[in-house]
Amino acid sequence: MAVNGVHLIVFANEKGGSGKSTTAVHTAIGLAKAGRRVAALDLDTRQRTLGRYLDNRAETVRRESVDLILPVHEVLDPLTVPALETAVAKLGEGREFLIIDTPGRDDDVARAAIAMADTLVTPINDSFIDLDLIGQVDPETFKVKRPSFYAELIWDQRKLRARADGATVDWVVLRNRLQHVEARNMRRVGNAVAELSRRVGFRVIPGLGERVIYRELFPRGITLLDLEELGELGISHIAARQELREMISALELPQPQGELAL
């Protein structure tokens, strides 16, 4: 969205438990640590997971006297489309990226955010339950029968965006909680997602694996990318940190020059 030149990265999924807010926070911190100018906006005024995550981070900085990058962030209030437009203009001023975390429900504000996105990220768990959000699958052949309501919703918002300013929304479906052992169900889900991507028009990238560490980081508001400077990076965290870096790289966000050094 051409507001102050900021690139809007909107994380959206109507199904809870997909790791949406965790992925959004790690993306924000990853970009900030790479020297990019980042802000964050939480549209979920009930759960406030992104907002609370970054509030916890600010408290850790105060309590432990550590030097952690802390992006400017807000929780949208009031929850209206005009308030969203105002917040985007304010938080986007002088920044390269604005990370927006939407609630796990369908409302006018979430739809407006999707239509405003430059990069739209839909995290899904690697299962047919989550896949059903964007496409219905035949129970015997596991072939895609038709796109689901959410894919149609995204299609409608992308058309609105095209009519508004001629721009396109880069829709990325991010496969979270990938298992580290190849399995038949994982292959079937992967094949179905790939088929849907061709029919509906999104890119598919690998996301974050199923790791306990992500749940443990929330109370302190820290990310995998902070552990080394805090002296807490273990061998088991190295692979997780690498998959995070690869995920952010796969988003293919605009670069000022050269490669993104995460």
Score class of each variant (00 low, 15 high):
residue 238 I to K: 15
residue 138 D to G: 10
residue 152 E to D: 12
residue 80 T to V: 05
residue 71 P to C: 06
residue 5 G to A: 02
residue 101 D to H: 01
residue 98 L to I: 06
residue 92 G to K: 02
residue 58 A to H: 01
residue 187 R to T: 11
residue 124 I to Y: 02
residue 16 G to Q: 10
residue 88 V to P: 02
residue 209 G to C: 02
residue 93 E to D: 15
residue 5 G to V: 05
residue 260 L to N: 06
residue 163 R to Q: 14
residue 202 F to T: 00
residue 234 G to C: 07
residue 239 A to Y: 12
residue 65 S to G: 11
residue 190 G to R: 06
residue 91 L to G: 03
residue 106 D to R: 11
residue 124 I to N: 02
residue 40 A to D: 08
residue 159 K to S: 05
residue 18 S to Q: 06
residue 143 K to M: 13
residue 51 G to D: 12
residue 52 R to P: 05
residue 156 D to P: 00
residue 84 L to A: 02
residue 32 A to E: 11
residue 230 L to D: 03
residue 242 Q to P: 07
residue 28 A to W: 05
residue 164 A to F: 08
residue 12 A to T: 09
residue 91 L to F: 03
residue 169 V to W: 06
residue 16 G to E: 08
residue 221 G to M: 01
residue 55 D to S: 14
residue 203 R to C: 02
residue 66 V to K: 01
residue 147 P to N: 07
residue 145 K to E: 15
residue 196 L to W: 02
residue 230 L to T: 07
residue 10 V to Y: 01
residue 41 L to I: 13
residue 7 H to K: 09
residue 82 P to S: 04
residue 231 G to T: 06
residue 194 A to W: 09
residue 143 K to I: 11
residue 251 L to R: 05
residue 177 R to W: 00
residue 133 L to W: 08
residue 54 L to G: 05
residue 153 L to E: 12
residue 209 G to R: 13
residue 238 I to A: 15
residue 238 I to H: 13
residue 4 N to A: 11
residue 143 K to C: 10
residue 179 Q to F: 09
residue 161 R to V: 04
residue 185 N to M: 15
residue 49 T to R: 09
residue 182 E to P: 13
residue 45 T to H: 12
residue 186 M to N: 10
residue 143 K to W: 11
residue 121 V to Q: 00
residue 12 A to S: 14
residue 221 G to E: 00
residue 116 M to V: 04
residue 249 S to H: 15
residue 107 D to L: 07
residue 181 V to H: 10
residue 160 L to Q: 11
residue 32 A to L: 13
residue 15 K to D: 07
residue 132 D to C: 08
residue 193 V to S: 01
residue 120 L to K: 09
residue 185 N to H: 12
residue 65 S to K: 15
residue 166 G to V: 05
residue 233 L to T: 06
residue 259 E to N: 12
residue 141 T to V: 12
residue 234 G to K: 14
residue 70 L to G: 03
residue 5 G to Y: 03
residue 248 I to C: 09
residue 253 L to V: 06
residue 41 L to Q: 07
residue 158 R to V: 10
residue 162 A to M: 12
residue 218 F to A: 10
residue 214 Y to Q: 01
residue 248 I to V: 15
residue 33 K to W: 02
residue 155 W to Y: 09
residue 92 G to F: 01
residue 125 N to W: 01
residue 207 G to K: 00
residue 152 E to R: 13
residue 90 K to Y: 10
residue 180 H to M: 13
residue 142 F to A: 12
residue 127 S to K: 04
residue 34 A to N: 07
residue 65 S to N: 15
residue 208 L to Q: 00
residue 161 R to N: 03
residue 44 D to W: 05
residue 146 R to M: 14
residue 238 I to R: 15
residue 133 L to K: 04
residue 28 A to M: 11
